[in-house]
């Protein structure tokens, strides 16, 4: 009985942590490359969920076709959402952050700009679509399984497996490809990167594409699991994912995953043991203690450069 409950909560924690991990990636990669905390990133997650909402509604309604089974609709929605949302992320970089960077503005101003971009996305959505909640259409029919007393759905499995696949993919990109190496190089020594013949702006755009598309993926998966959308859905989740990124050691991809899953575990297990209204209070108190002991996060190291 105890084991079953534990496994059940573990599975829930893995799914919940997956959302945090996918969003935390964007925070951590942009920070690694630009030393910028991109506070608009949580709202990119929201944009992803809404973009997916419109694409799925169109593909299931107006443009539905017998040649498009629901699974294919889902696949198209995921890919198209990732592409379109990356466009939004890159546009924010172009319009808001790059001009400041060109003028050599201090990082504080860029962070404030990021906060404003997030608010613009939220309120733009509110102005355009109104405050009413939207129901995300069901593309994958949910199937529930029960193995040895542990309940799970195909969606839950999909979320967890996708997140693991993303982890492997991103680690490979960052370790093996020259663009990935350039991302790591920028985080260490920005000045020397153009001296390698590398256009820094290209690397930055690539980073925003990766981060935004992963937030978009999180948006689609989240909406598939919890099919209610509202303009502020990215705010709190975004904050928590940012905390997850710091917890894992900001600037580190594996840190984003470790932090995301850790936050998921703490939240789910606290909620399992205590009244759920105390969940965030206890969870974040634990994290506060953790960070006061290891301020650099799980994988973070304080940097010492050799002269």
């Amino acid at each position: 009985m105890f084991l079953e409950t534990f496994l059940q909560n573990l599975l829930n924690a893995l799914q919940w942590g997956s959302f945090y991990a996918l969003i935390a990636l964007g925070y951590t990669m942009v920070y690694g490359v630009l030393l910028l905390i991109n506070f608009a990133h949580g709202d990119i997650f929201m944009v992803g969920a809404y973009v997916a909402f419109f694409i799925a509604t169109l593909l299931l309604g107006q443009y539905s076709s017998p040649f498009l089974p629901p699974v294919l609709v889902f696949a198209i929605t995921v890919v198209a959402t990732m592409v379109i949302t990356s466009g939004v992320g890159v546009a924010i970089e172009r319009i808001a952050y790059r001009p400041l960077r060109r003028k050599g503005a201090s990082r504080l101003y860029v962070v404030i700009t990021a906060l404003m971009c997030g608010l613009i996305l939220e309120n733009g959505n509110l102005a355009l679509l109104g405050a009413s909640r939207r129901n995300f259409p069901e593309m994958l029919s949910k199937t529930a399984y029960n193995i040895g007393g542990v309940n799970f759905t195909n969606v839950k499995l999909l979320v967890i497996l996708t997140t693991i696949a993303v982890f492997i993919l991103l680690e490979t990109i960052v370790r093996k490809t020259r663009l990935g190496m350039a991302m790591r190089a920028i985080s260490y020594d920005r000045m020397a990167v153009p001296l390698m013949g590398i256009p820094v702006d290209t690397v930055i755009v690539f980073t925003f594409i990766l981060g935004s598309s992963m937030a978009a993926l999180a948006g689609v998966l989240f909406a598939t699991a919890y099919p209610v959308l509202e303009p502020y859905m990215g705010a709190l989740v975004g904050w928590k994912a940012f905390i997850a990124a710091v917890l894992g050691g900001i600037g580190e991809i594996r840190g984003a995953f470790a932090g995301g899953f850790l936050l998921g575990f703490i939240e789910i297990f606290v909620a399992a043991l205590f009244p759920s209204t105390l969940r965030d209070l206890i969870a974040f108190s634990i994290l506060l203690v953790f960070l006061s002991i290891k301020p650099t996060g799980i994988f973070g190291v304080s940097r010492a450069t050799k002269i």
């Binding site: 020259r178 190496m181 790591r184 190089a185 260490y188 020594d189 000045m191 050799k306």
Partner: peptide
Amino acid sequence: HIFGNLTVFENLKLATFAR
């Protein structure tokens, strides 16, 4: 301005970025 977080070989490989 060596990239201290990359290996020696990665430092060299990065320099071939545009080639």
